[in-house]
Design a protein around this nucleic acid. Structure first.
Length: 310
RNA sequence: GGAUGGGUAUGCCUAGCGGCGAGGGCAGCGGACUGUAAAUCCGUCACAAAGAAACAACGCAGGUUCGAGUCCUGCCCCAUCCA
């Protein structure tokens, strides 16, 4: 199994096609937003022509009204991998969602539970009423270890920890501890593509401008007309949440575009922070290859077993 | 030429109206993350240092005051308006 990841706009998609062809692989997208149909421009989704006959999985599999999350990603990705292996092909996970990738590479066990929206809402309400501190206090009572790890302002994660206990009767801190011991059950090659920060940021800015030119605004308008609002998981996506605010008249278009660029830059930074923790990561800095994808690919293929290359 | 408002730290915006070794925001930088992860959250951000005490710093130069970013005078910039 090959993983090809890196911050947004670094050029994963393009390289992934060349890589897939070189090893006879199929691509599994590890992207929390490209799973949604009708969200193409803002997610920089690859189009059929660019796929060049390389099979892609986990793109366009959900409606924007549906909820997507790691556990579902893991399930779908594992399914896809089984299929790919059964065809004697190599699965290549391509995408920038480090958390999702880890769920697959380390076979994290997500105990099967349905999301308990009522419970979550209840806790959100509690936090709004009594403050984040009080909510965090509740977690302290049942799972002090988790409470020590989760900052009290991080309401979302505090709620998840409480929810976990509520649903399973077990402490999430213990569960996490167990899961951390997991190592990858696959023969794994984890490649991280990167580029100097200033260049990456410039590329992000450029890409956002292009998205706007390509009609991102009308894409968002279409989704809005369809009834989607900021509360939808899909509308948490970069470009989508900001443009929805614009459509509500909260800011000018120019301000919104700047906002999207900024948010995307921050996101790229968070991605990099995540990848730095992945011990098995093999890094490729594009600047060291003069931004020549062919040279980079050659070097990358060198890291793989000879028998994989066709 | 006149009127008015303003110039605040290594980048930008801003609070401040006599006790400020100057508060906040943004950007930048660093980090966390196990069911919303393109989410959520945290730290740092003059220099030096941990010393009853140090020489920096609020456009520049003076002045008033025990004490000035804050008040006064002059000058220099910027914005808007009037000639």
């Amino acid at each position: 199994m090959i993983v090809l990841t890196g911050p947004t706009a670094v050029g994963k998609t393009k390289l992934s096609i060349a890589l897939a062809k070189s090893v006879g692989g199929e691509i599994i997208s590890a992207d929390s937003m490209q799973v949604y149909r009708g969200m193409d421009i803002g997610t920089a989704k690859i189009d059929a022509a660019k796929m060049q006959e390389v099979p892609h999985h986990l793109i366009d599999v959900l409606e924007p009204e549906e909820d997507f999350h790691v556990a579902l990603f893991q399930q779908l990705a594992e399914q896809a991998m089984d299929e790919i292996y059964s065809r004697g092909k190599i699965p290549i996970i391509v995408g920038g969602t480090g958390f999702y990738i880890q769920a697959v590479t380390n076979a994290v066990d997500f105990t099967e539970t349905e999301t308990d929206f009522k419970f979550r809402e209840e806790l959100e309400h509690f936090a709004a009423l009594h403050g984040a501190d009080a909510l965090h206090q509740r977690l302290c009572g049942i799972d002090p270890a988790a409470a020590a790890q989760i900052h009290k302002n991080n309401i979302k994660r505090t709620i998840r920890a409480l929810e976990y206990y509520h649903q399973t009767g077990k402490k999430i801190s213990e569960h996490n501890q167990e899961q951390k011991l997991h190592t990858s059950p696959y023969e794994l090659y984890y490649f991280v593509l990167t580029a100097p920060r200033d260049l990456l940021y410039a590329q992000i800015n450029l890409r956002v401008d292009e998205m706007i030119k390509d009609g991102l605004l009308s894409e968002v308008e279409r989704l809005q007309k369809r009834g989607l609002s900021k509360t939808a998981v899909s509308m948490q996506g970069l470009g989508y949440k900001e443009l929805l605010e614009y459509l509500e008249g909260k800011q000018t278009l120019q301000e919104t575009i700047e906002q999207i660029k900024k948010d995307t830059r921050h996101f790229a930074k968070r991605q990099l922070t995540w990848f730095k923790r992945e011990k098995q990561a093999i890094w490729f800095d594009k600047s060291e290859f003069d931004y020549n994808d062919n040279r980079l690919l050659k070097e990358l293929l060198n890291k793989l077993p000879k028998t994989w290359i066709c």
